[in-house]
Nucleic acid binder design. Structure first.
Length: 497
RNA sequence: GCCGCUAUGGUGUAAGUGGUUAACACGCCGCCCUCUCAAGGCGGAGAGUACGGGUUCGAGUCCCGUUAGCGGUACCA
């Protein structure tokens, strides 16, 4: 099979799985599924200082929750250490790389950006200098190394010429060799560096298509140089537009924190398919108007040609409790909650209720029908499954607060003190506690008392749920049942006034 | 500084090889439904395609320049 497809997602475990990473993983996964290929997960943990097992765990969890399990892996880049060194050794022997005895510069992490800029400026002013060790005879260099001298290994980048490749998203790319410095392959303490490790691993794993963030677009030329030095055929490259924070600011794990972490969405009640759908649309479009797409539809329609070249803003508002994340993501999640079957939705809601300590086991057995009916009653007004546990508390528990605004709006009228308990009496005496029977009882009662039915209905809603908004009043009564309805109506009398 | 990428309403995106008044979704506003809030239905405001030049009978679409944002420029990944 000539066109076998093998792709990989290669996160570094220096943080949780954030939106950018998740989107990259998703596109690789879609590409693999689309072409009947293999999706591989490789953890790039060469920077041991900043990597941690918890982060690896977090990434794995996030991917699993999104349904993006790898076909192969997870592999850990650090375990291929020897292969990376061997590749560098080979390039050294072939004269394509050299030992650099320049002492390592100390730098502290907070000022790297400044340092890079400063150094670059200085270099521009002074004119580029060749590395003095580039042409040192290999035998002599080897002697010095064996004598215990520390040296980094650098790739010998050709002095003249242009690096070119055809990006599957961005089209033809080129970069002059003179703009690429002799990159370090192996640090002087012996650790292989990113660019070398990636290439060696991608070769070893038979990666055919490298799909990753646009932040690697110019770095790709460096990696191509390594492929060429190693004498290996190039994979195809496809770079993805970056995801930005509101205001086209760059997305930063440190600054934006949880709102860009996939696990946050799991914890706050997102449906995995909904988030996948939303993520897919961030930087990609199948063309045309369709936006709600199942996994199968996404796979069917996915193509790198549909990937956008410009970066996309992920429009979250962390400080706004109502719209803490992108409104469209929230809308899409709501859309999924409405469209999915109750059998699919119920366990997800149950999970949230358990988390909030208001779950009752009978809702999974004898009360399953009631439970399904109740979430069905509520689903069209909620946007996440967590809303069932927070906004929906009065429907699942007797321990809920009366919202002051609702009390003020619906229980202000002094007459209600008498009317609510009067209504409770009526409801206690009707034969069958059904939607229609309760409604006619309430309407008859309000007519007798000479008040508008609406007054009683709205008051009853607040009496029963502590809220001013919610499903139709008689539906609420049905879901609460006669006993609770009467109890809550009587109890509410004390809030009147 | 240098190299590179990008640029369509507030946000996400449409608009095969340039061809009528720039389309859809989210959000926003209004109306209908109605016991409230959603959902649903209907309607509306909001961009003349970053800016400036070209090419062309005709440009969001091609070319050049400017600006802005972003990425890279590390013995980070």
């Amino acid at each position: 099979m000539a066109d076998i497809v093998r792709v990989r997602f290669a996160p570094s475990p220096t943080g949780y799985l954030h939106f950018g990473g998740a989107r990259t993983a998703l596109f690789n996964w879609l590409f693999a599924r689309k072409h009947n290929g293999t999706f591989i997960l490789r953890i790039e943990d060469t920077d041991v200082q900043r990597s941690s097992v918890e982060m690896v765990q977090g990434i794995l969890e996030g991917m699993h929750w999104l349904g993006l399990d790898a076909d192969e892996g997870p592999f850990f880049q650090s375990s291929f250490d020897e292969e990376h060194r061997a590749a560098a050794r080979r390039l050294l022997e072939e004269g394509q790389a050299y030992y650099d005895f320049t002492p390592k510069q100390q730098k502290d992490d907070t000022t790297v950006q400044e340092m890079i800029a400063h150094r670059a400026r200085a270099q521009a002013a002074a004119g580029k200098e060749r590395n003095p060790y580039r042409d040192l005879a290999y035998e002599e260099a080897l002697r010095r190394v064996e004598a215990g001298e520390q040296a980094a290994i650098r790739l010998k980048v050709p002095e003249e010429g242009v690096s070119r490749f055809e990006d599957m998203v961005y089209g033809p790319q080129e970069r002059d060799y003179s703009d690429i410095e002799d990159l370090v392959l192996i640090r002087s303490d012996g650790y292989p560096l990113y660019n070398l490790s990636v290439v060696v691993d991608d070769i070893a794993m038979g990666i055919t298509h490298v799909i990753r963030g646009q932040d690697h677009l110019t770095n790709t030329h460096k990696q191509i140089l390594i492929y060429e030095a190693l004498g290996v055929e190039l994979p195809r490259f496809g770079h993805l537009p970056l995801i930005m924070a509101p205001g086209r600011e760059k997305l930063s794990k440190r600054k934006h924190g949880e709102v860009v972490s996939v696990t946050t969405y799991r914890d706050r009640g997102f449906i995995p398919d909904a988030l996948v759908n939303f993520l897919a649309l961030l930087g990609w479009s199948p063309g045309g108007d369709q936006e709600i797409m199942s996994r199968d539809e996404l796979i069917e329609k996915f193509s790198l040609e549909g990937v956008n070249k410009s970066s996309a803003v992920f429009n979250f508002h962390e400080s706004d409790p109502q719209n803490w994340t992108d409104p469209k993501a929230l809308w899409m999640n709501a859309e999924y909650m409405r469209a999915m079957t109750l059998d699919e939705l119920a366990p997800l809601v149950a999970e949230q209720l358990k988390k909030f300590g208001i779950w009752r086991d009978e809702w999974a057995s004898s009360g399953a029908a009631w439970f399904a009916g109740t979430i069905d009653l509520l689903r069209s007004r909620y946007r996440t499954t967590q809303d069932f546990a927070t906004l929906g508390l009065p429907y699942f528990s007797d321990e809920f607060e009366y919202e002051p605004a609702a009390v003020k709006k619906n229980l202000k009228d002094e007459r209600l003190k008498r009317l609510l308990s009067g209504l409770a009496d009526r409801l206690a005496s009707i034969e069958e506690f059904t939607h229609d029977a309760t409604e006619s009882a309430l309407r008859a009662y309000s007519e007798e008392e000479g008040v508008k039915a609406g007054l009683l209905i709205n008051a009853a809603r607040t009496a029963l749920t502590g809220q001013a908004v919610g499903p139709g009043m008689f539906d609420i009564m049905m879901t609460l049942g006669r006993e609770r309805t009467i109890l809550r109506l009587r109890r509410a009398a004390e809030f009147v006034g």
